[in-house]
């Protein structure tokens, strides 16, 4: 019996499915990783590669590496996520050593502007609009914290400095934000 391909809602079995597909050399593994871990992995890369387009490039390289080294993953050495995180960090560090990256650091401001334009051009479907409304029930500070910590690659220390809050408060509020997020969805 083969496991189902789509499994976003069904619990930790996603991890089991992905590991199964990696071992049987089925590319569904990459699709499931992308769907279920894509945003968190991109965030981990963004913590090191501070440039969104380059971070997306890195994620693409990571997917290829995962495919090529998938059989080296061992459950005994930690969870799939921990392994994926390690692959992402190594790829991100490699990226920061490239000439392209060093050049891009100089033009970062220009790239940020492009990013904002890209985000603004993003269109929302009906279902997405509905979810967006649900999320808008969260206080805006909590939305901001989730955004910085889980999507913009900021460390909690950086957030504390940026939002002018003590580090302890940042940690408690992020936890609260995630709990609220879970209760409204």
């Amino acid at each position: 019996m083969s496991p189902p391909t789509q499994n976003i809602t069904k619990g930790n079995s996603v991890e089991t499915d992905i590991v199964h597909y990696l071992k049987t050399r089925d590319k569904k593994a990459l699709q499931l990783i992308f769907e279920n871990y894509g945003p968190v992995l991109l965030n981990i890369i963004l913590r090191i590669v501070k440039d969104r387009p380059m971070a997306q490039d890195t994620l693409q390289e990571v997917l290829i590496k995962i495919w090529k080294n998938g059989q080296s993953y061992k459950v005994e050495n930690g969870s799939l996520f921990t392994w994926l995180t390690r692959v992402c960090r190594n790829a991100a560090i490699d990226k920061t050593r490239t000439k392209d990256y060093k050049l891009s650091e100089k033009f970062n401001t220009a790239i940020d502007l492009v990013n904002i334009a890209e985000l603004a051009a993003h269109e929302e479907g009906t279902e997405q609009l509905y979810m967006r409304q649900m999320i808008d029930q969260l206080p805006s500070v909590q939305q901001k914290l989730i955004d910085l910590a889980y999507f913009q690659g900021y460390t909690q220390k950086e957030i504390a400095k940026f939002m002018k809050m003590p580090l302890g408060t940042v940690k408690t509020r992020i936890r609260l934000a995630i709990r609220n997020l879970r209760s409204i969805i």
Binding site: I8, T9, F34, N36, Y37, G38, P39, V40, L41, L42, Q56, L59, F81, L119, H122, E124, Q128, M131, R132, M134, I135, I146, D147, Y150, F151, I178, L181, R182, I185
Partner: peptide
């Protein structure tokens, strides 16, 4: 649960790779 929360947030805000 945390991962799914983040994932839903990503879906809703279009903040996905």
């Amino acid at each position: 649960k945390i991962r799914k929360g983040i994932l839903t947030y990503a879906e809703a805000t279009g903040n996905r790779p």
